[in-house]
Amino acid sequence: MTPFVKEHGIVVPLDRANVDTDQIIPKQFLKSIRRTGFGETLFFDWKRRADGTLDPEFPLNQAHFKDAIIMVVRNNFGCGSSREHAVWAVVQAGFRVVIAPTRVLDGNRVPAFADIFASNSVKNGLLTIELPETEVDRIFDAITATPGMKATVDLTLQTITLHGAKDETIRFEIDSIRKDHLLRGLDDIALTLEHATQITSFEAKHDTQLRAQPA
């Protein structure tokens, strides 16, 4: 997996909450048996008008966001299905970072990302950053003021520096396990197989309750 250390590039805004995986990659693109070729399918339907032509209103279609590598969105991004194809589409369209807000609504925390999407992201070198809503609003405002604005995301320092009218730095929190995995670009399977002996000894005393195999 490609390690994530520090990235610099354009930030594209997608001002929508609860963006589900069916929007990120519509189902007709899940039939591929390959791991590549998903970049063009990102937000396939949202990118297009009813007649099939590209919608110039959709941010990802706009010239100043063309080479964006950072996407800023609203809460609960990636909800819905477990399809890792959604993360493949985001990554293969050139993105390295997605930023979303955690909100507090009626005393409950509304998460930035859906669980499975976040878990799939780290396995593909995609950094998902959770920020308080006020900070995310600041990023949206900065892009409105300077469309095509760039930012630098430094995972080691846990900072986002917005290069708008003036430089502003926002610090973010990330759990140490996810950070370590991304920084080192670790292969989970190889790491787990280092514990093969322990898995074998666990299996020796563990009952899977599987009693039969059909003929």
Binding site: S82, E84, S119, K123, N124, D188, I189, T192, A196, I199
Partner: peptide, 18 residues
């Protein structure tokens, strides 16, 4: 629970999940 394809591969190879 549901998992992504990288985790499917992890289970096939190790019969465990992190």
């Amino acid at each position: 629970f549901g998992i992504g394809t990288s985790e499917v591969e992890h289970v096939l190879a190790t019969q465990t999940l992190r």
